[in-house]
Design a protein around this nucleic acid. Structure first.
Length: 305
DNA sequence: CTCCAGGTTCCGG
DNA sequence: CCGGAACATGGA
């Protein structure tokens, strides 16, 4: 029952960079096929393609795609809210058009539980393996996709099944959280009703969800754009660029700084800083002493409005 | 081989 | 509240 899907054009105001949005480390299952990107949005298939300001989607209702890609986020206002400092300016310059998408709650939480101490590419491998083995198959005219496995499906598995997906010690956490959600002991819809602080506190009750993963879930799943996840990269960035020379900067201090300095859209600022550093700093992490000047500065402006 | 990866949990000061 | 150790696995 896969009728050829019609292509729809998604209008958007401001800037949008599809590739950046899908490869910046907020979501891990999209795959490139030629000029297009294929991925499931919840249980719906999506094929999306961008050529400049022309954004076309197939397989899913245009409105749902627009919501997922957060084409309504006011990027101009968001950028204007960023602090004006050299590090932020460089990150913004490198990441214009990156949007924080609205991931389904469960798959966002589950994915970030599996992300602990894993590289971005490995997180993607785990996500694909879980989807292919246990997720619902989605047949469509541009191929076969896989939804993220429902809580009840994972809840019914054995821990060894999950370890076979390269989850390591995270298997126990994902299993326990899946069971809590599947049984109704933990209600994600209730979390969505809470304010940021209460929602964060509630998520901490889930196995494998600590402060960082809870912030990722709030930012990438629940649309709480102020959430400021602090991972190893952000910690390096803050210590190196914002607390240079200061010794014994406590984790608490970094949290407070991150939650305040970057403003009401701190989550956006965080993602821009994260992606910029991760793609320009050497692995293991310090900025190049002589930051390589952007050799070609023409590209970013070309597709921008 | 060693080091590191979008951390969390548990345990002693 | 803070610092350390254990926890799995694969890529660079």
């Amino acid at each position: 029952m896969s009728a050829p899907s019609a292509a729809a054009t998604l209008p958007f105001t401001g800037e949008f960079d599809l590739e950046l949005t899908l490869t910046c480390g907020q979501v891990f299952h999209w795959r490139r096929e030629g000029d297009a990107w294929l991925g499931a949005i919840g249980g719906a298939p999506c094929r999306v393609e961008q050529h400049g300001r022309e954004l076309t989607v197939r397989g899913i209702a245009p409105g749902k795609a627009a919501h997922y890609f957060a084409l309504d986020h006011p990027l101009d206002e968001i950028y204007a809210s960023f602090p004006r400092d050299p590090a932020m300016a460089a990150a913004l310059d490198a990441c214009r058009g990156l949007r924080i998408v609205r991931q389904p709650w469960w798959e966002c939480i589950a994915t970030f539980i599996t992300s602990a101490q894993k590289s971005v590419i490995h997180i993607a491998q785990i996500s694909h393996m879980l989807r292919e083995r246990y997720g619902a198959r989605i047949e469509c005219d541009f191929g076969t996709l896989h939804a993220y496995p429902e809580p009840a499906v994972i809840a019914a598995l054995d821990e060894r099944d999950l370890r076979a997906c390269a989850l390591g010690y995270r298997a126990r956490h994902l299993l326990a959280t899946a069971r809590a959600v599947a049984s109704g002991t933990f209600d994600l819809a209730e979390v969505a009703k809470l304010d940021d602080a209460a929602a964060h506190a509630a998520l901490l009750r889930l196995a494998g969800v600590g402060p960082k993963v809870a912030h990722c879930a709030l930012l990438f799943g629940f649309g709480r754009l102020t959430s400021f996840p602090i991972d190893v990269w952000i910690e390096r960035i803050l210590r190196t660029l914002y607390f240079a020379g200061k010794r014994r900067v406590t984790a608490k201090r970094l949290r407070e700084f991150g939650a305040g300095y970057f403003g009401p859209f701190g989550g956006y600022a965080q993602q821009y800083l994260f992606h910029h550093a991760r793609t320009t700093w050497p692995r293991g992490g310090r900025p190049a002493l002589r930051p390589r000047r952007a050799s070609r500065s023409a590209a970013p402006g070309a597709k921008a409005a």
